[in-house]
Design a protein around this nucleic acid. Sequence first.
DNA 1: TGGGCAACTTGACACTGTAAAGATCAACTC
DNA 2: GAGTTGATCTTTACAGTGTCAAGTTGCCCA
Lengths: 215, 215
Amino acid sequence: MSEATLKKPHHHGNLREALVLAGLQLLEEGGPEALTLRRCAALAGVSHAAPAHHFDGLPGLRKAIADEGFRRFRNYMVDAEVLGEQTDRGRLKSITRGYLNFARDNRALFLLIFGYDLTGSRDSHADAGHFAYDPLRRCCAPFVPKGVAPEVIEAQVWSLAHGFASLYLAGRFWSSASDGLFDAVMTLLDGVGATAGVGTAGLGTAGLGKGGETA
Amino acid sequence: MSEATLKKPHHHGNLREALVLAGLQLLEEGGPEALTLRRCAALAGVSHAAPAHHFDGLPGLRKAIADEGFRRFRNYMVDAEVLGEQTDRGRLKSITRGYLNFARDNRALFLLIFGYDLTGSRDSHADAGHFAYDPLRRCCAPFVPKGVAPEVIEAQVWSLAHGFASLYLAGRFWSSASDGLFDAVMTLLDGVGATAGVGTAGLGTAGLGKGGETA
DNA sequence: TGGGCAACTTGACACTGTAAAGATCAACTC
DNA sequence: GAGTTGATCTTTACAGTGTCAAGTTGCCCA
């Protein structure tokens, strides 16, 4: 009578969630290559074809895992923001620190999350990413100068943090002690929103390409 | 008698190079997933097991392709540098433009190149990447303040360019017309080497982690 | 009670990388 | 020149992968 599955009922209950958790475990233990429909199924104790039924193939499973990954990603950033220095610039730097920490602690998941090409797709995946970047967007807001599209400032911070995290994961920053390097690189953000060029390069909202310039 | 292979000699000649070219073609036509040992073999007109003999497996083939990719990557940057405005800052921006252009024109190859984790490996692959980043390093040199390690400035430029390119490839920059956004983001570089924070955050060569700070 | 239906299982197929063993051919040695 | 050696490539086989089609199970509701 207890809700425990004494005899492994044919209907798993919430196999969907179990498969996502199994996938996350596989990623953590064996890297990106280890994520496999059949291995997920085995880890969840179901037949090899069960995952495909729930997620409509491997891409679907990866997307479901990425959605959960974005959730955790967001938590990393928010946690870092709350713990760090409570100034506008302090929050901005804390967010980028959380960005790097997530990438470092969840290497395979980070790579999975950004391994998609969602150009032209307006599905729930894009929404998950959008949701995850909410804190970053919020922390960028105080640095948006008059007449400049917020997306420009966000893209600056985002690119810098993402680039550093990606190159770090690829092992392109020499030795392991990159904490000092990270802080040094992020000093570039001290000029964000106040750099001389921001006002002069003719970037209003038109800079986003929403305007006429189709070239 | 002509050097043409009228009867397909058993010894291909330079199968190694042919396989790398086949791999590049597959990447271009079918994306990262299309790169396969067996497909490379078929495209080069040899048996399916031939590539493994030359490259010691798929990772070896990917590495060989990445080496060639880095060569082309470097050319992109150098070409952009030569064509652009001939000032220190002009060259710096041109390099980053070349960076993005390469990523855009060689999506799968770009992803392949940076898809490795070469932490702890000091093989020829690291050398290829090192070689490719030579122009970028050179263009950063004029912006390195006294007492700051060159690697810090390089990592700033590198991270910003790489982050933007990666996020662009992932389709995270909304619409297609991101040229304006790119220029806007790169205005952050107008403060490189001269940002207020660079002098104040205590980053000498110690910032690289080569010094004592092991935390 | 029985039908409907979603949740799985079973079996098969094409494709993948890898390994072992055999064939072919150029070059070198005696 | 005959024999040997070794690299290059082929053939064969195997385990693992995603995907599809068909079958089975068991819950739910009329």
